[in-house]
Write a protein that binds this DNA or RNA. Structure first.
Lengths: 226, 226
DNA sequence: GCGCCTCTGTCAGCTTCCCGTAAGCTGGGT
DNA sequence: ACCCAGCTTACGGGAAGCTGACAGAGGCGC
């Protein structure tokens, strides 16, 4: 899941990136409203974490612009101000949730999950393909009810595929989700992860298969014949 | 198990922390209703021990707020007042149990265990993984029916893992349960306990294994191949 | 009080394994 | 037959975790 974090404090930004990564989010961090606008024009995000106290003006402006465009990407507002007034303004302008600093990382993650679980969204608590089950909350994989041990990256790739099971996922999309904007992809990392995933899935007797669509991407689907 | 203790008498608070620790509870102590609200916003507790005679107002307010939010965390009310009226008010407002000062520490512990054994809870009297059995009441561990002797800390870690057997438990979660809010975690204490647990379990011929999930945490599961 | 012991948390050095890269191979499509 | 996308294997750097030793804090018996 790819997020945009709008936060001018570089230190906190780095902390968030790291913490969110541990929960399977790839976060792009920007420090100004201007950069936020550009990032939003360039890519689609699953959700946005927005600090209101930005140096170059008001974060609320970003939010308003977004909603004017009928963009319904979930926005979680983050701020040091705790007055009722600010909270009301934020929510009236289209924020979906509100968190006051200082906050616990776990609470941020919990609220993001809640937001992403909303109506139209891509989320149940667990995803299933064949006998492979992915628990989105615990970020854990089961094959025929036995827990499997995958690395963080492997889990991330599998999640993307399973969230779109039966549909093709472009290699580019996977790269973006793994690495965010910092597009350092000087290699075939995705191919390597697909390979490792296939191997482990086969070894564990999974009844799900990752197919290759040449020139397009990958697709996970239930395995047919025994 | 992590508890919140709301008690303004610092001396009694310290005493409770210590006594509860001896029974495997990690208690965060706060002295005011305000602090209690903040603690509850920041973390999840297995149960709450609530003194009604607080300096900054009424402890019952905390309880009411909690129940308004549909939070069903068990609450044990603690008070010097012994009138029937107070007792009734407390229970009507959603307290689960009631204890009048002065009280014996053992009685508090017994009642907490009773509360935690309730309906939705994750509790039978004993937990089992492979041939390892954990008696939650006596807080004792058996491997293939022979009793094992672990230290308090070790038992606490094992309990957390076994209550979530087959699922990943983050290292952070274990720290929080062991040390409460007083997050003095300047080291790799959890790793050390995991190490000691593994060693003892192996030595005693346990058919249960603690797996490491890099960058995430640990997981206990039945050992597969013989 | 005095030694003895266990429990705890810390540290430093070692080991393991993840991650990304690269380089050569395979196979499908034209 | 050739080319290119994707597959496979190998490897080095570095982070995460493991492990053995140790010192302080109690607790216990004497």
């Amino acid at each position: 899941m790819r997020l945009l974090v709008v936060e001018d404090n570089a230190e906190l930004g780095a902390l968030l990136t790291k913490g969110l990564a541990a929960s399977g989010f790839a976060a792009d961090v920007v420090g100004t409203a201007q950069d936020a606008r550009e990032a939003l024009a360039a890519a689609r995000y699953a959700a946005i974490v927005l600090d209101l106290g930005l140096p170059d003006g008001d974060g609320l402006g970003v939010l308003r612009k977004l909603r004017e465009r009928r963009d319904t990407t979930p926005v979680l507002v983050l701020t040091a101000r705790s007055s009722v007034r600010d909270r009301v303004t934020g929510l009236r302008d289209g924020a979906d949730d509100y968190l006051v600093k200082p906050f616990a990382l776990e609470e941020l993650v919990a609220r993001l999950h809640a937001l992403l679980r909303r109506p139209g969204e891509l989320l149940g608590r667990s995803l299933r393909v064949g006998n492979v089950v992915f628990d989105t909350e615990a970020r854990q994989v089961f094959v025929a009810d036995t827990p499997q041990f995958f690395s963080l990256r492997e889990v991330a790739v599998l999640e993307i595929l399973m969230r779109r099971s039966g549909r093709v996922v472009s290699k580019k999309l996977v790269e973006d989700h793994l690495f965010g904007l910092s597009g350092d992809v000087g290699s075939n990392a995705v191919e390597v992860y697909i390979h490792r995933l296939r191997k482990q899935l086969a070894d564990s007797g999974a009844k799900a298969q990752i197919h290759t669509i040449r020139g397009v991407g990958y697709l996970i689907a239930e395995e047919k014949e025994p």
